[in-house]
Nucleic acid binder design. Structure first.
Lengths: 226, 226
DNA sequence: TCCCGTCTCAAACGTTTGTTCGGGACAGAC
DNA sequence: GTCTGTCCCGAACAAACGTTTGAGACGGGA
């Protein structure tokens, strides 16, 4: 019973506490390496051996520190989505403060689009995290999809804010348009940008994040105000 | 050398010819069963044994008729995307004829959205095919992604038509907005609808395809005309 | 010094995977 | 009848997979 700290760790650290100081260097190395490989190559195309080999740790480290491969995947998923939702909520809160509790559509969309888009900047550390989150939406474990299906608490405030900003629209209509706007984000994958690049004969460039953000907000705002 | 018809078949039937009469019943059974299982459970989560067991054929049938599991996947992908592109091109052509070669944005978007959306109707046979195609975009083989990245010939006519309908817009802008509109389609997955359903407390219903189509076109048209 | 909890290690386990093999059934041509 | 090509079958193969095991290294507290 001495060689199973994964379950004890789960019970102890209820909150998402990283504590880089105290945490074992091996566990952190597995975490970041796994996130990168999963994001780049897909969940099923990366084996535990690939992770541990690239991280320079022992094969058994994954099961020792995380319990299983799926549990490792789920922990990365939980931490990154929590960070993203926190940042989005922070921006929405600021927008609400700036507008006496009634932010306009444009600022609500900015709070929704800007965090993942800014993180997608090639210079940004979290570029990989965004790709991981997007991938989880289609390739995720059943546990992940269960969360994605049922846990919509982070979207409630955005839906309510949009309903408040569009009082003339039926609530049903607002939900659908939020659904469409979210789809625009999930389409921000490597392959989709490559297709766009090929279609436009190199006219479109991915690098300019601020311009892309403005384009997305313009498009979605017009859709909401239609 | 007698037991390898897969390669000879590839050379012989250059075009996508099904010929249900002449084609072996086993091959057709493998094809439709594989498509359904792949679409429902994901490419990597379905084994050759799952397919052959459910289809009621021998395990070796996949390799005998298609060469390999990946080749089977690719053949399904090629046939279904070809059918989808053909239907879209047909609708765009009709819209062009109706408008003296200059169809408006709304009809172009209808040609883009309507085929996959109408096929997604629960009553429609091709519901599975649409899910397969959507899945190929994120879980596909490297061969599929290569096609998705480079082969954009089917989108050329849509991009040109949109540029013609929006002469005041910069070409670059049109390409980006087409990219956004396509993202709205790819978001039409089971899990995404479930999330929308949970978020709206059951206010939104998936079943009504015509209403959804109108909503999507309204949203995207406003984005293009912004 | 001894003990104990934490962590790492090489090695192996059992399962599942895609693929291949040889044989045989069946039908049409000669 | 004999041959030939097509197709199906059970059986096996080698590889890769996630996971488990038992032992050992290390360090702080008694």
């Amino acid at each position: 019973m001495t060689n199973t700290p994964a379950q004890a760790d789960e019970a102890g650290a209820d909150e998402l506490s990283l504590d880089p100081e105290r945490e074992a260097a091996t566990k952190a190395a597995v975490f970041v390496t796994a996130e990168r490989l999963f994001a780049l190559n897909g969940f099923q195309n990366v084996s535990v051996r690939d992770i541990t080999a690239e991280a320079g740790v022992n094969l058994a480290s994954v099961n020792y520190h995380f319990g299983s491969k799926d549990a490792l995947l789920f922990e990365i998923f939980r931490r990154r989505t929590a960070e993203l939702n926190r940042e989005r909520a922070r921006m929405l809160h600021q927008a609400s403060d700036r507008n006496d509790g009634k932010p306009p559509v444009r600022e609500i969309l900015a709070a929704l689009f800007e965090p993942p888009l800014r993180w997608s900047n090639p210079a940004h550390d979290r570029r990989i995290s965004v790709q991981f989150i997007i991938r989880a939406r289609s390739e995720g474990t059943e546990a992940m999809k269960e969360v994605l299906r049922t846990d919509v608490s982070h979207l409630r405030r955005f839906a309510d804010a949009l309903i408040g900003a569009l009082p003339h629209l039926a609530r049903e209509e607002v939900y659908w348009r939020l659904h469409f706007a979210l789809g625009m984000i999930h389409n921000n994958r490597f392959a989709e940008f490559d297709r766009l690049h090929a279609l436009s004969d190199g006219l479109t460039r991915e690098s300019d994040v601020d311009t892309l953000l403005k384009r997305m907000i313009d498009f979605a705002e017009a859709g909401f105000l239609a």
